[in-house]
Design a binder for these strands. Structure first.
Length: 429
RNA sequence: GGAGAGGUGGCUGAGCGGUUGAAAGCGGCGGUCUCGAAAACCGUUGUGGGGGCAACUCCACCGGGGGUUCGAAUCCCCCCCUCUCCGCCA
């Protein structure tokens, strides 16, 4: 969420940012309001606020006067009759004010973040910029298989039975497949904690406030699984519960930066991606992920983004998986992000780089929404922290990359050196 | 699921419906004393918002939302959360 004062004072900057994101001039279809109308609304809000406060002041002053008279056993009838109805008037004005504030807030929640100046301008993923590549896609002296074929041949991934148990877009991992899933998870958590991230294991069902805090609601309700009766949402990423750890808190300056890493299952409806990646593990309703989350001081957030991305990259490097780093362009940038790097790993089965991590700086966008602030030593007032997060890494997709990159001519899969101790074997045969 | 207790400032903990933004203690900060420190003493110590160049000033906030009243932390209603005991259960 943007600051209404920023919107008020910089409508042109906002328009420019929206244009770069490919949203033309802004009108939030969902709330049927455009920027000019909101600016007008803001003017009315402040006018009304002044009126209400003036009345409240009158109420306070006169009520005190009445109290004084009563204590002195004097007659207060005149003042009492004068005050009759003032509260009602306040209530009326206040209701109107509340309505305006609701409208304004709703509107603000549909405005995306302002892209950082370093973000390449472009209209869609074809305009994303490759920042660097690491490793060389290996050549194979045989036609490399897809991971779902490898998984089936080795008997470690069972899609048929998974669809019997749950449905499409689920997988049943078996034997070495299940072990590999667990090995990756432990490997990633161990590496991340060695880099100073504190391991946390959060709730994976969360309430509405948490989903709103990180920006999944109200705009992306269609992507979420929800439990109806006691109302809960299944998290689409650990970003949600972990960022919400500090919702409505005022942190001390010396607490920052805070680094967390968390393994969680993630759940996504994948509505609107019918027909995309229908086979294999790439796009599942339920998948495992290890996440990196940071709370930092504003002046540090872009350095921290580079460091966070490097931490995620190191996982791929240790697994010796070729990848590239892509800076998302303005048109491809997520709603809440000011800047995002995607890590794309090489998949021989698809002869393509595929996203395996997404590392973003949200600046104060999430923090304002989730009300996460900090207080500087010796300074009055508070500031919003900057939040960042990135996958470190998506486990299912990493498993795919391992299977496809380490497959052998004889159908077996070698285990990367870094995972050997976690797997207890050198190869899956 | 049944029965009870409770939610007040960074923490502990008071608060007859009317100078209570809120006693007191602790903690924090500043100062006196000291070679320095501790102790002692004095002072200070919330968040958000509106107006103003500023000094400053006004408004809101005692779990959340309604209500009663000239006036609510205090009275009434609803909701949420935490804790204890019983039952059930991984």
């Amino acid at each position: 969420m943007l600051d209404i004062r920023f919107v008020r004072d910089n409508p042109d900057k906002l328009r420019e940012a929206l244009r770069k994101r490919g949203m033309a001039d802004f009108s939030a279809a969902e709330v049927q309001m455009n920027l000019d109308q909101v600016l007008e609304l803001e003017g009315r809000r402040r006018q009304l606020l002044r009126e209400v406060e003036e009345l409240r002041n009158k109420r306070n002053v006169v009520s005190e006067e009445i109290g004084k008279l009563k204590r002195e056993k004097k007659d207060a009838a005149v003042l009492l009759s004068e005050m009759k109805g003032v509260s009602e008037k306040i209530k009326d004005l206040d209701d109107g004010l509340g309505e305006i504030e609701e409208k304004e807030k709703l509107f603000l929640r549909y405005i995306p973040n302002i892209p950082h100046e370093s973000v390449p301008v472009g209209k869609d993923e074809t305009d994303n910029m490759v920042v660097r590549t690491w490793g060389e896609p290996k050549g194979f002296d045989f036609p490399p298989l897809n991971h779902w074929d490898i998984g089936e041949i080795l008997g470690i991934i069972d899609f048929d039975r998974a669809s019997k148990i749950a449905g499409a877009r689920f997988a049943l991992m078996k034997g070495a497949g299940a072990r590999l899933e667990r090995a990756l998870m432990n490997f990633m958590l161990d590496l991340n904690t060695s880099k100073g991230y504190m391991e946390v294991f959060p709730p994976i069902l969360v309430n509405r406030e948490s989903m709103t805090g990180t920006g999944q609601l109200p705009k992306f309700e269609m992507e979420l699984f929800r439990i109806a009766d006691p109302e809960f949402y299944l998290i689409p990423t650990a970003e949600v519960p972990v960022t919400n750890i500090h919702r409505d808190e005022i942190l001390k300056e010396q607490d920052l930066p805070i680094y967390y890493t968390a393994y969680t299952p993630c759940f996504r409806r994948e509505a609107g991606s019918y027909g995309k990646d229908t086979r294999g593990l790439i796009r599942q309703h339920q998948f495992n992920k290890v996440e990196l989350v940071k709370f930092v001081k504003p002046e540090d957030s872009y350095d921290e983004l580079e460091k966070l991305t490097a931490n995620a990259e190191e996982i791929l490097q240790r697994l010796d998986l070729p990848y590239r780093v892509v800076a998302l362009c303005t048109g491809d940038l997520g709603f809440s992000a000011a800047k995002t790097y995607d890590l794309e790993v090489w998949l021989p089965g698809q002869q393509k780089y595929r996203e395996i991590s997404s590392c973003s700086n949200f600046e104060d966008f999430q923090a304002r929404r989730a009300n996460i602030r900090f207080k500087r030593e010796g300074k009055k007032g508070t500031e919003f922290v900057h939040t960042l997060n990135g996958s470190g890494l998506a486990i299912g997709r990493t498993l795919v990359a391992v299977l496809e990159n380490y497959q052998q001519k004889d159908g077996s899969v070698r285990i990367p050196q870094a995972l050997a101790s976690y797997m207890g074997t050198e190869a899956i045969t």
